[in-house]
Structures are given as structure tokens and as C-alpha cells.
Write a protein that binds this DNA or RNA. Structure first.
Lengths: 114, 114
DNA sequence: GCATATATGTCGGGTTTCTAGGCATTATCA
DNA sequence: TGATAATGCCTAGAAACCCGACATATATGC
């Protein structure tokens, strides 16, 4: 009923994460925070989505992980982009643009002639 | 490797269908064709996605169906927007715009200061 | 008679996300 | 000191949605 929750569009999260990591290596918790800040609170990534996504991206060799000390002096898993990941990200950015264009065509389609 | 298939972004299909139907009542097969034409072949809606989506939209009272004779002289199920469906569609269009803006913020985010 | 286009539908499988937890450490504040 | 919040990682189960494959039927044209 209420459905007031902002649900992430499926398939978008991977790209967003890759892009945030491309800004500089970061760990999961910080990635989620950055994503929320940059998007002005639009994206609120839940942990149940975040960590599976990170593992997925690592499995596909788009991210690589390394345990290091975080800003707060605690151990955290820092992710960085692989070459493959950067290529994939760039391709996905292009693809996203095409998708937005295509949706735009539909949304702006004029009413049919009778 | 190749994975060249263009997969529809999950959650977009409903909006696209509602928008196409808003252009004028139509049946499933024609909706898929229009979607493909309008989007310049970007969207190719498969039957396994199309018909479940139509039933879903009807269940939610966003579309209503009526059997009529199609252009080719055959019986076809014509869908039209309900008032509820139109309201939902308009809200989803706004939401889509916000989503695109938010993704845009992330994709255009400048590299961090060190 | 047969292929193709039109037209609707189902089924199973795969992917992704959410909810809802669990666990551990450090910082803050009463 | 003790409680609570913030930081940081993780998993399991369920739901939603899309795809590929398949099944069915009629109309048209060769």
C-alpha cells in the first residue's frame, strides 16, 4: 500500500558503486555514504544490497579488495577498480545514456494521429 | 564474455507500457511493436515479459482490458489506462526524472580532493 | 498444404533487491 | 561504569521481475 520507499532501480547499483569507487578506493560503508551524499540523499543503499553487490563485483573481477586501516583507525575492506572494471564501467555509462535516451523517446512521444 | 543482450532495466517496463497505452488504447502485440518503433529498436519486449506485465498492470487497476477486433480482423485484448493508472504513470514519470538526475549527479561527480 | 505474421499465454530459471537479522569494535555521553 | 550510537562486516529468506522456451490459434500469401 504505502509504497513510499524509494526503491533502487535494478541493475543501476553496480554502475553507481563502480563509479564511486572510481573516485578513489573505498570500503563498503563509506561507499554507501558517499553515494547518499553525492546523490543528495536520493540513494540510500541498504547493507543487504551493498555487500552482496560488492562481492558480486569482486567475483566478476571488476573490483579488487584489500584489508586496510580506515580513517577511523579500524580495519576495513578497501575496494578499487580493476582495469576490467573500469572498462566495464565506461561501457555501462554509455549504455545508461542510451537507455535514458530511449526512455526519453517514449516519455516524450506525441499522441498518435487518429 | 559477449553478453551482448540488451536487458531491459527492471522496473522500467511498467512505465513504458503505461506511457504507450496512454497514447491510445492498444493490445499487447501492438504495444510491443510501438515500443520498439518509438525507441528506435532499443526496446524489444519479449512475450515472456510483456504479458505478465500487462496482467500485473491490470491486477493493480492501472489498465483495463476489453476484447475487440484488431486492425487485422482478429480478436485482441485492448488495454486502456484507468484514472488510477494515469495518476500512477504521471507520478512514475516524475520519479523517473528524479532518478535520472540522481544517477547523473553520481556519474558526473568530480574526483575527490586528496 | 505450408510458412509467416499476428496474437495470447504459461513455465522455469536466474538475477537483484529488500527486510531482518547477527557479530564485533570504537566513540560518546549520562 | 554502563548504555547507546556509530562504524564496519556479513548472511539468509523472500519477493519481484525479466528472459528464453514453449504452446496454441487464426489469417494471409505462396
Amino acid at each position: 500500500m504505502s509504497e513510499a520507499r524509494i526503491e533502487l532501480l535494478r541493475g543501476t547499483l553496480d554502475l553507481l558503486i563502480l563509479k564511486v569507487v572510481a573516485l578513489g578506493p573505498s570500503h563498503g560503508y563509506a561507499i554507501a555514504q558517499r553515494l547518499q551524499q553525492i546523490s543528495k540523499d536520493f540513494f540510500q543503499v541498504h547493507q543487504g544490497s551493498l555487500y552482496p553487490a560488492l562481492h558480486r563485483l569482486e567475483d566478476r573481477d571488476w573490483l579488487q579488495a584489500e584489508w586496510k586501516e580506515s580513517e577511523t583507525g579500524r580495519e576495513a575492506k578497501f575496494y578499487s577498480l580493476t582495469k576490467k572494471g573500469r572498462r566495464h564501467m565506461e561501457a555501462e555509462v554509455v549504455n545508461w545514456g542510451r537507455l535514458v535516451d530511449a526512455v526519453g523517446l517514449v516519455l516524450r512521444a506525441p499522441a498518435k494521429e487518429s
